[in-house]
Amino acid sequence: MEKIITVKNLVKKFGSFTANDNLTFDVFKGEIFGFLGANGAGKTTTIRILCGLSSPTSGELKVAGFDIYKETEKIKQNIGYMSQKFSLYEDLTVSENIQLYAGIYGISVKKRKEKEAELLKKLDLENAKNKLIGGLPLGWKQKLAFSIAIFHEPKIVFLDEPTGGVDPVTRRKFWDLIYEAANNGITVFVTTHYMDEAEYCDRVSIMDAGKIEALDTPAKLKEIYNAKNIDEVFLKIAR
């Protein structure tokens, strides 16, 4: 399988605190890679480094085949990112948000219009096209934020706790979108602390105190740790 992210001996220190302690892992093309851990385990730090928002203290990293130190601009063209806060502009309409991101990623007006119509239809947001984001329900914002993050058809999309604060039904629907993106060949790198979501991933890594303690398919992990579900696996590791 083709590796799309390679991380070798990643270390990130904030002063004397080590947020990422010698991480080594690979992510394969087209998979849904779950990045699990308790709050403060260092998930967000890793995802920020991979996105170029933060630079590592040391380590060898490649994202989408590009070196993280030297080829940041090329990486940026090939990734999408959705943060915990969804990060849409509340005082812009649905359509204006799409226009903005399309503009930033240099998508032509013609293509943007086609894709926008398609997207609004898929998300059932045609009537809300000219409504301000601020007035939309959380679940809608979240789906829209994800769709915008992959609007420019990146090779990889990074999702940093994308499902925080929404109900299980909405979460399930959101995961349908993630599957769809994966089916279209987009690699999904997702952090979460909902253990049920881990079951939806192709492979999961479990972090604790800055280290990766386990990395495998959900089925394999359950087998190794002799657990009924990932929740149990996680509790065994974190303890």
């Binding site: 170029g52 990060s87 930033i104 240099g106």
Partner: peptide, 9 residues
């Protein structure tokens, strides 16, 4: 939103 902008090109 700044993060989103910084991640973009």
């Amino acid at each position: 939103t700044m993060e989103i902008l910084l991640v973009s090109p």
